[in-house]
């Protein structure tokens, strides 16, 4: 009972921290740059994404959210999977732009995979060619607010050496 309470508190604390300072990583999987300059524009003074505690990181190992653009070219595919695997749990993927959603105008081309969700799981989709900075902010904030719903389950299971491993399955 006490342990559960403790875990619950820790979980609440973690979710609170996560929502207030999500660090994002930006990956271009073969887009035209249009979405990428709009992502960059959201970080600069006019739109200022940092007021939500969102910071752009250079390394996947520091990031919670992967902002992904582009239709995933065959060459970028392995990179994308690797970056996704290098990120720590829990991790969230946001697909930005028409190409990232479905391949966009490049759907069916010989070198593209037709969208991010063909390769890795996606949690939020932001449509547009390219989406406006406001739309990107809206999408990221929606993702964050869905985290705050207290459905963040904690599954506990004793492991072989007696320690208790926690596994979060929010979203």
């Amino acid at each position: 009972m006490t342990q559960n309470l403790l875990q619950d508190t820790i979980q609440r604390l973690k979710t609170w921290a996560r929502i207030n300072s999500p660090w994002v990583l930006h990956f271009n999987s073969g887009s035209c740059n249009g979405c990428d300059i709009e992502i960059l524009a959201t970080l600069t003074p006019r739109y200022d994404l940092e007021r939500f505690g969102i910071k752009l990181m250079g390394s996947p190992r520091h990031a919670d959210v992967l902002l992904c653009t582009g239709a995933v070219t065959r060459q970028a595919r392995d990179r994308l999977v690797r970056i996704y695997e290098q990120m720590h749990d829990p991790k969230f993927v946001v697909a930005i732009g028409a190409c990232a959603l479905s391949g966009g105008v490049f759907r069916g081309c010989y070198n593209v995979m037709d969208g991010i969700d063909q390769v890795i799981p996606v949690h939020a989709y932001i449509p547009g060619c390219p989406p406006r900075p406001e739309a990107i902010i809206d999408g990221v904030v929606k993702l964050l607010s869905s985290l705050s719903i207290p459905t963040a389950k904690v599954e506990t299971q004793p492991s072989t050496d007696g320690r208790i491993e926690t596994k979060e399955c929010s979203l």
Partner: peptide, 29 residues
């Protein structure tokens, strides 16, 4: 083109058909 691109397949030749390579690779991801 990626390093694992099939040999003797040249995308801009007229007899190359769009989609043939992509689907084959995707199945084997």
């Amino acid at each position: 083109l990626p390093d694992d691109w099939p040999v003797d397949t040249y995308p801009l030749r007229k007899d190359f058909e769009q989609g043939t390579v992509s689907t084959a690779v995707r199945r084997g991801v």
